[in-house]
Write a protein that binds this DNA or RNA. Structure first.
Length: 685
DNA sequence: AAATGAAACGTTTTT
DNA sequence: CGTTTCATTT
């Protein structure tokens, strides 16, 4: 039983009376066991499982905890507990409330925003020192949404007075963008939280007796306001001040810091016994983090006894010597490969490491899903399935159409408008069961002086007859074929899409649908186009063998997606899970290659923290943009406390590829691994 | 309006 | 280093 295994500190936290409870749990102090214990305690005290909400930082973490509950209380009870990230829980709830939500990737929404931006800002008006470009502006806005207080333009000009001039312009853009987003039924990550909070404030009642929040230190004001809107009588927030590493996403350390002020009568518990790391590893981590100001006193006790190997500093001349030697050490290590991790500040370190490991035949796994979901052959499939779910999805439709020969963004948008009209709001019906248009369909024409997806203007309609193409399969004479500029090969592509539209209307499971899509002439044509591009040499000649190989890989990947989809019964759940959890899948097995952020919550026998050079870790570029050295130090703390038995810290003083000299990270000085004080070393003559 | 080839660009971390 | 944006051609 979960509660039996807890130490007195953990037990007293887990069995705390209902109320506002904050648990300060340093690295390796059995945070997860305490949460499991808490849930066990609630269930044993008669709290109904469906009134327990567990919020975690990743859906994977939620799944693992629910699995542990299932072991003790059975799958039935475990499944009643609401668990997931703020985002996925909000999504599920909004879905249940009947809110139509088509969740979109941030990159997609950014592109959509850019079309609004481009129309409002003439090219000539864009100079350096002028207004922000679309992408950074969108990023700022997104960060602001997570920070919730005040107006956007005010917040922006507080950061940089130069933006004050453009405040109204920006506000107007986002007003239009948000309206457009609503009209198209799209939602981004932030929207899930904003919509959920709105529903709660409008009186939607929350059924939760207690909300448990894991990784509380990484909560941002938007999430916190949602938590407050939930209004649960009891909170169980678990976090560690020293592991707050998501300031860039709006996380505010003050939220955990002011818990007892914001909730009078709150109880604060502290877990102080570390079960993970050896004494020398823990003492190194503590030595470094001691340079940060304390909010809560922390006295970590080591419980591991026996011989321990001290953390080792590995210094190298050149960057790739470092990667190579670490790969060699890993090859010689006695530890199982999946109990070893290489941790870095910036993902750019991963490629070099992976290459060197591969050279020695060592398997490795990288988090972040890799590029699987970024691959075009996967994206098209997801876009096609999206159409089955959201039959008026502008972005999905346009992305698919752009694979058509001689069809670009402009023609795609015209076809979208037309199909939507003759389908009475349903693109698929527009293909399969078109209403006869009362007026000519394509009376609009693209105006290149007004860029973006919405830059159309009325011009004199051009007459074109749909029957000028000879097509098989019942698509001949279709109203969409009256598009005046349509090429014969484009018409053929549309005929293939017509056939697929029939598939998308059938009530199929994601796996069955993907299977049929892969076998369709449409996908064959798209795959061929992609493979052709990839088989092209630099001198524009086609390497047939390379093309065949590329095509094979495309279909293999498509099969992988089909396998992945087997876990889902409904298409809409599948699609949204792919957006919400795309980054949570790791590919392969073996040595773990992780960014510090991705390593959060994990532990390994042996840990290599690499590229500990000033500038890279701490990341000076970020710090110049407002990042804080304290946050970088916390990142270092998180990285080193992943290690159970062995910890290696490494750096290289020369990057021959970029021709950059590197100095060791200041954290190596603070750790006492390098003598003297950072910044004091004399310059070489 | 699309396709092609050349130039610029920037390389943080995540739901 | 690879991607994304720009300019030119058809």
């Amino acid at each position: 039983m979960p509660l039996k295994k807890l130490n007195p500190e953990q037990l007293s936290a887990a069995t705390a009376p209902l109320g506002k409870n904050l648990i300060i749990a340093s690295a390796g102090t059995g945070k997860t066991s305490t949460i499991i214990g808490r849930i066990a305690h609630l269930l044993q005290s008669g709290v109904a499982p469906e009134t327990i909400l567990l919020l975690t930082f990743t859906n994977k973490a939620a799944g693992e905890m629910i699995d542990r509950i299932a072991t003790a209380f059975g799958q039935g009870v475990a499944n009643e507990i609401q668990a997931g990230t703020f985002h996925s829980v909000s999504y599920k709830w909004l879905k249940k409330l009947g809110e139509p939500i088509a969740l979109k990737q941030p990159s997609e929404l950014k592109t959509l925003f850019k079309t609004v931006y481009d129309r409002r800002l003439q090219r000539t008006a864009r100079q350096e020192s002028g207004p922000l470009s679309a992408a950074p502006l969108y990023d700022y806005y997104s960060l602001w949404e997570n920070r919730v207080h005040g107006s956007f333009s005010q917040w922006l000009s507080d950061r940089n007075p130069a933006h004050e001039l453009y405040g109204d312009l920006y506000e107007g853009m986002f007003e239009e963008f948000n309206a457009l987003k609503r009209q198209l039924g799209f939602a981004g990550f932030n929207d899930l939280l904003l919509l959920m909070r709105q529903r709660l404030r409008e009186g939607e009642s929350s059924p939760f007796e207690e909300v448990l929040v894991d990784e509380y230190q990484d909560t941002n004001p938007l999430q916190n306001s949602l938590l407050e809107a939930l209004g649960a009588p009891s909170l169980f927030c678990v976090g560690d001040y020293d592991q707050s590493i998501y300031a860039f996403n709006g996380a505010e350390i003050g939220i955990i810091g002011t818990f007892d002020e914001r909730y009078p009568g709150a109880q604060v518990f502290s877990l102080s016994k570390n079960y993970r790391s050896s004494a020398p590893i823990l003492s190194l981590a503590n030595r470094v983090i001691a340079h940060n100001p304390r909010i809560y006193p922390k006295e970590l006790q080591v419980t591991k006894t026996g011989p321990a190997s001290p953390p080792a500093l590995l210094a190298y001349g050149e960057l790739f010597d470092q990667y190579q030697d670490i790969a060699r050490r890993i090859a010689l290590s006695q530890s199982p490969k999946n109990a070893i991790a290489v941790i870095f500040r910036n993902n750019s370190s991963a490629d070099g490491l992976e290459a060197m490991l591969r050279e020695l035949g060592i398997p490795c796994r990288r988090k972040g899903g890799g590029s699987f979901f970024e691959a075009r052959e996967i994206k098209v499939l997801l876009d096609l399935i999206t159409l089955a779910v959201n039959s008026r999805d502008l972005l999905a439709f346009i992305h698919i159409l752009e694979y058509g020969p001689a069809i670009g963004a402009a023609t795609a948008k015209e076809l979208y408008d037309a199909a939507l009209e003759i389908g009475q709001g349903n693109l698929l019906r527009g293909f399969l069961d078109p209403k006869r248009p009362s007026a000519p369909l394509f009376a609009k024409s693209y105006d290149p002086t007004r860029p973006g997806l919405f830059g159309h203007e009325e011009v004199a309609p051009t007459a074109a007859r749909a029957d000028r193409f000879t097509l098989s399969g019942g698509f001949g004479g279709h109203p969409l074929l009256t598009h005046p500029g349509l090429q014969p090969e484009s018409a053929q592509f549309l005929a293939h899409l017509y056939q697929v539209a029939g598939l998308l209307c059938q009530p199929l499971s994601p796996a069955r649908l993907i299977e049929k899509l892969i076998a369709s002439p449409l996908y064959e044509q798209i795959a061929d186009k992609l493979a052709h591009k990839r088989g092209l040499n630099k001198n524009r000649t086609l390497d047939e063998a390379a093309k065949a190989h590329a095509k094979e890989r495309i279909f293999t990947k498509a099969q992988t997606l089909k396998e992945l989809s087997r876990h889902y019964q409904e298409c809409d759940r599948f699609i949204n899970a792919m957006v919400l959890g795309a980054g949570e899948m790791s590919e392969g097995s073996g040595v773990n290659l992780l960014s510090v952020h991705a390593s959060k919550g994990l532990e390994f026998d042996e840990v290599f923290v690499v590229d500990l050079m000033d500038g890279r870790f701490p990341n000076r570029k970020l710090m110049s943009q407002g990042g804080e050295i304290e946050e970088e130090r916390r990142l270092f703390y998180v990285a080193t406390t992943r290690a159970r038995d062995r910890l290696y810290l490494s750096y290289a003083s020369w990057d021959k590829y970029k021709k950059i000299d590197h100095k060791p990270s200041q954290f190596l000085y603070e750790a006492g691994l390098i003598e003297g004080r950072f910044g004091d070393q004399e310059k070489p003559n």
